[in-house]
Design a protein around this nucleic acid. Structure first.
Lengths: 125, 125
DNA sequence: GTAACTGCAAAATATTTGCATCCTT
DNA sequence: AAGGATGCAAATATTTTGCAGTTAC
């Protein structure tokens, strides 16, 4: 495993995700950045964090990746098996405190999960 | 609602999906087509079928849309709340005969679901 | 000093849109 | 004949890659 270094930009990404009430796309994180940063860098930071398990992401039905800090995930590298909710109207995706029990499957070895509910959130109802 | 017309190309898309053992991307459907067809047309056919509920799709963690005929879905326009499994190695996505009970949520109105397990399938283990 | 991190430009990929033409009803 | 379906080209949008320059350790 590669030896990671601490940088301000990485810390800022973590901080932004920590304060977020919803999952964030790379674009949104960029906009929330207090300092100048390249979008490619954000993608690479997120890639590293996802790999190490600090962060997880869901793919919205729009095909975009939405990232969240794994606060509610019990441990790093776990299944991230909680539900996400995507509102079709405000397009926000939230992590919900509901965990799905993954069924035992003979023919499949589950490594990650993405549970997404799609509909209308309370702000948009 | 628009009055739909019957065309050979639409029928072929349905037929291909009906015979598929896994979900298919627009690209894969194109490759399976016995006749010449434009990719845009495939996207538009899939869009119409998704809208009418004949077909559903899951978004893989690669951000691509994978389509399937709603054979196992109880009715058109239902939640499509069964599990899908994406193999990271052969990149196939299958519909599994397991349904997830969607929890009652006060603040959200669920219209669709996308349940995706990611890992390794039996062929790749 | 070395390898990790970042920035910039360009490439790759998937999907959408506009518009003209074709074809089902 | 009317309007839905299709094809082609171009536009959008997101994410990835290559490479050079910078910085943490």
């Amino acid at each position: 495993m590669k030896k990671r270094r601490n940088t301000q930009k990485q810390e800022l990404v973590l901080e932004i995700l920590a304060n977020a009430s919803h999952t964030m796309s790379a674009e949104t994180i960029l906009e929330a950045m207090p300092i100048k940063i390249n979008k490619t860098t954000i993608y690479r930071i997120l890639e590293r964090f996802t790999e190490s398990g600090k962060v997880h992401f869901v793919t919205g039905d729009d095909g975009r990746a939405y990232y969240a800090l794994c606060k509610q995930c019990s441990s790093e590298h776990d299944l991230h098996n909680h539900i996400h909710f995507q509102c079709k109207y405000c397009n926000q995706i939230a992590c919900l405190p509901y965990t799905i029990n993954v069924p035992e499957l003979e023919n499949y070895e589950v490594q990650e999960t993405q549970f997404l509910l799609i509909g209308k959130c309370k702000e948009c109802i």
